[in-house]
Design a protein around this nucleic acid. Sequence first.
DNA 1: CCGAATCCTTTTTGATACTG
DNA 2: CAGTATCAAAAAGGATTCGG
Lengths: 111, 111
Amino acid sequence: MYDYIMENDCDPIYGKVDELLELLTKSKGLHILLILHKANRELGFTDLKRHVESASTTVSRRLSELEKYGLVDRCQNQTRPNSMSYALTEKSKSLAPIIQSMYDWCKVNQC
Amino acid sequence: MYDYIMENDCDPIYGKVDELLELLTKSKGLHILLILHKANRELGFTDLKRHVESASTTVSRRLSELEKYGLVDRCQNQTRPNSMSYALTEKSKSLAPIIQSMYDWCKVNQC
DNA sequence: CCGAATCCTTTTTGATACTG
DNA sequence: CAGTATCAAAAAGGATTCGG
């Protein structure tokens, strides 16, 4: 087993990991992904906003960032013109179960 | 299956989950837990500081918070008097694999 | 060396107002 | 309604300092 803990320098992968974590860990970042995962379908802005209970500014910003990192797809809402829908990407679909297990852990441990 | 997404009110568990996530997602929060997990033994302040590459102020604050939430144990260092060691608690031991999988996901997806 | 207190800078958030 | 711009407040981070 690679006992990297004994190394003096930091595992270089951490830089990139931290970069993503900085995004995911901003307010409602993980939450938005989890909501989309559980919904298992596209959701509109207002739906998301209601579920995460945050200011529209925050939801808007977070969605932009998530989209930029390829974790959320923004697509035309089929039913409502002039509005968008948001969904997980292939990339974030594989992350969602991990987030889910984190929430589950929180539940069980009653934090 | 409980389709909570259709509910108007927010799942009440989210308040508590978010509270924990706010802690875990502060700078180096997850990182510290992962380092302790991989080390699989107590680590001193300086060891931790070096591995997460952050200011002592930040490491100190994070450790205090993690301890307060029962995610880190602070105990007397056996070899060096006047200094502490830090280790995972039973509680955080069960969380560590989840954090690990998040890091692994980041690695694979090259974020 | 270990780690916390102070103090200052940067980042993030959210209320409000605004546009299509 | 669906977002975005602006701006003020709050939160978080880090350099320095200081005491064991």
